[in-house]
C-alpha cells in the first residue's frame, strides 16, 4: 500500500540527496579554487552557498510538517529523525565550503606552498567520505560507510601533518606565514567536514539498522 505520506517522505529523501550533492559539489569547487587560484570559482561557491541554507530551511519545514500530520513510527520515524540531523550537518559542510572559498580568494595567486601541501589529497578523501555517506542514505545501505572511522583517522592524521609541514615552512621563511596560516585553516575546515561525514553516517546507520553506532 502506498500512501501520500510515503510518497512525500520519498520526495523529501530525494531533496536531502540533492542537498548533499550540492554541498559536496561546493566543497569540491572550493578545493579547486585553492589549487587553481581561480577567484571566479571561489565566488561561485560563495553565491551557491545560499541555496544550501534555503534547502536546509525548506527540508526542515517539510519534515516537521510530515511529523505533525502523520506521527510516523519505526523506520519512517527514524528516517525523518535522520533527515533533520543530516541537513544540519550538510548545511555546515556548505558553510565550510564557503570558508575554504574565502581562503582561496585571500591566497589570490599561486604560491610555492600550494604545490607542496597535501590539501588537495585531503580534500579528495573528505569528498569521498561525504559522497559515501550520502550514497548510504540514498540507498538505505550501510556498506559504503563501513570504514568511515578509519577514513576519518586518515583525515585527522593529514590535518596534523599539514600543520607540522606549515610550521616548518613558517620557521624557515616568515614571508609564507600568511598563506601557511590559511592552509592550516583550510585543513581544519576539511577535517570538520570529515567529522560531519561521520555524523551523517551515524544517522544513516540509525535510520537503516535502528541501533546506534559511534564513529570516533
Amino acid at each position: 500500500m502506498q500512501t501520500v505520506f510515503h510518497e512525500d517522505l520519498r520526495g523529501l529523501s530525494g531533496s536531502v540527496v540533492e542537498m548533499g550533492e550540492l554541498a559536496i559539489d561546493l566543497l569540491r569547487c572550493a578545493m579547486d579554487a585553492i589549487s587553481t587560484c581561480e577567484a571566479e570559482k571561489a565566488k561561485q561557491v560563495l553565491e551557491k552557498r545560499k541555496i544550501i541554507t534555503t534547502m536546509d530551511n525548506d527540508i526542515e519545514e517539510d519534515a516537521l510538517r510530515l511529523l505533525l500530520l502523520y506521527q510516523p513510527v519505526a523506520r519512517d520515524l527514524r528516517r525523518l529523525a535522520a533527515i533533520l540531523k543530516i541537513i544540519t550537518y550538510l548545511e555546515r559542510v556548505g558553510r565550510y565550503a564557503g570558508d575554504v572559498a574565502k581562503i582561496a580568494l585571500e591566497l589570490g595567486r599561486e604560491s610555492k606552498i600550494t604545490k607542496i601541501m597535501s590539501i588537495p589529497y585531503m580534500g579528495e578523501l573528505v569528498v569521498s567520505m561525504l559522497e559515501d555517506s550520502i550514497r548510504a542514505f540514498a540507498e538505505g545501505d550501510i556498506a559504503p560507510i563501513a570504514e568511515m572511522s578509519q577514513r576519518d583517522d586518515r583525515v585527522d592524521h593529514l590535518r596534523y601533518a599539514i600543520f607540522r609541514e606549515c610550521l616548518a615552512f613558517m620557521m624557515e621563511d616568515p614571508s609564507v606565514i600568511e598563506p601557511c596560516v590559511n592552509h592550516i585553516m583550510a585543513a581544519r575546515y576539511l577535517e570538520r567536514c570529515g567529522d560531519h561525514a561521520c555524523k551523517i553516517s551515524e544517522k544513516v546507520y540509525y535510520m537503516v539498522a535502528g541501533g546506534r553506532m559511534e564513529i570516533r
Binding site: M1, T3, F5, H6, Y70, P72, V73, A74, R75, D76
Partner: peptide, 9 residues
Amino acid sequence: TERYITGRF
C-alpha cells in the same frame, strides 16, 4: 509489525 505500524498495510 514494521509494515503495520508504518501504515504499509
